[in-house]
Design a protein around this nucleic acid. Structure first.
Lengths: 198, 198
DNA sequence: TCTATAAAAGAATGAACATTCATTTATATT
DNA sequence: AATATAAATGAATGTTCATTCTTTTATAGA
């Protein structure tokens, strides 16, 4: 029997991601995607059940990449400041180096697909995060807080900054561009740590 | 001549918002919208140039609502802690009372429409915010920071919490629901202030 | 080398899409 | 009451959509 061509699937995934990032979910048409990936429309349906499945698979893949990148050099048993710093910088690096992934993941967050995705995700990542926070709370290295508050203070500002960096549009109205450099990242991380330490 | 029926435009706007929130931009079809608003498809084109225009007008309206709600009782000349607290609570209140608006605005943020929208928005709101921060910095009531960092620390956590509240899904994996109550909001606001005060 | 099998293709299908057209309807002004 | 005008409509247009059907092609195992 004929064997699958991995390059074809990769091309489909890659072009689909770009299409969604560029033109939104509206802009992702199977026929245009087929053309962009140099493949017949029917071929897409060999690798993916349907359009929804394609989008969900895309999310699962990008999410895994992001999770792996986040955990490089990280251990849930680490002390709070060290652990947070490592994760923070890992996330920042991933976002800056993979703007399309980041953009796609953010776009998914508020789409109707997100709920479906969450159900399919394996939650070892989330568990590791929870463990880390609880260690830190037990050791009194962090203010005692619901995990969600901790989470939102720790990482939401980072993502917000990345968004502004990516759109090149800060908050000064005019034409001034906002660039998220290392200095600004360290400033922000410092403030985040200040907020969360007892 | 026949006069415009304001109720028709309002119905179109309202149903369109709901459709986008429920089914994403994909789900907003002019024919379905017409049916939902009890109107002929052609009527939509009396009030809006085309589908894109409809979406952009929707954004402008919801953005204005949000901006107005945010500024109730606020003055850019206020002292930092008071001003931030007022704005923070105003925003929180608006989000919790208008989940559809909030959801729509967030969904727009990462869509290709967002750039078009930003161009059309009047920037008095952004200017007021900038003024407020600069006062606060001059009075040494806040750490000296690029406006974007200040902004992301101050409000990104709030929106993140609202999102988790709205999806009912926190970070504990299982079935435990996350509810953003007044206690949690005050805890978070306290941390934000701690981060930003010198 | 032959055969079985799944990959891959291109054309085709019918549904749904945004938008427009020709017509009717309501009303403000005369 | 008559008229002019824009609102409102339902049907129609041509396009694009996701998906499937039929056929061809490549290749692993016999």
């Amino acid at each position: 029997m004929r064997t699958r061509d991995e390059h074809k699937e990769a091309a489909i995934r890659e072009k689909a991601l770009v299409m969604v990032v560029k033109d939104g979910f509206d802009g992702l048409s199977m026929q245009k995607l087929a053309k962009a990936a140099n493949v017949s429309p029917a071929t897409i349906y060999i690798y993916f059940k349907d359009r929804d499945d394609l989008i969900i698979q895309l999310w699962l893949e990008e999410m895994k990449k992001m999770a792996n990148a986040t955990l490089v050099g990280f251990d849930p048993a680490m002390h709070f400041e060290e652990g947070l710093r490592i994760q923070w910088l890992n996330r920042a690096k991933f976002c800056m180096e993979n703007p399309a992934s980041m953009h796609f993941l953010e776009q998914m967050k508020f789409s109707p697909y997100h709920e479906m995705c969450m159900k399919k995700m394996d939650n070892t990542f989330i568990k590791a995060m929870g463990e880390f926070v609880h260690h830190a709370i037990n050791r009194k290295e962090v203010v005692k807080l619901p995990v969600e508050v901790y989470w939102s203070i720790a990482f939401a500002p980072l993502y917000q900054l990345v968004k502004m960096h990516m759109s090149g549009r800060g908050l000064r109205g005019g034409s001034e561009k906002f660039v998220l450099d290392e200095k600004i990242m360290n400033q922000t991380l410092k403030l985040v740590l200040k907020a969360l330490k007892p």
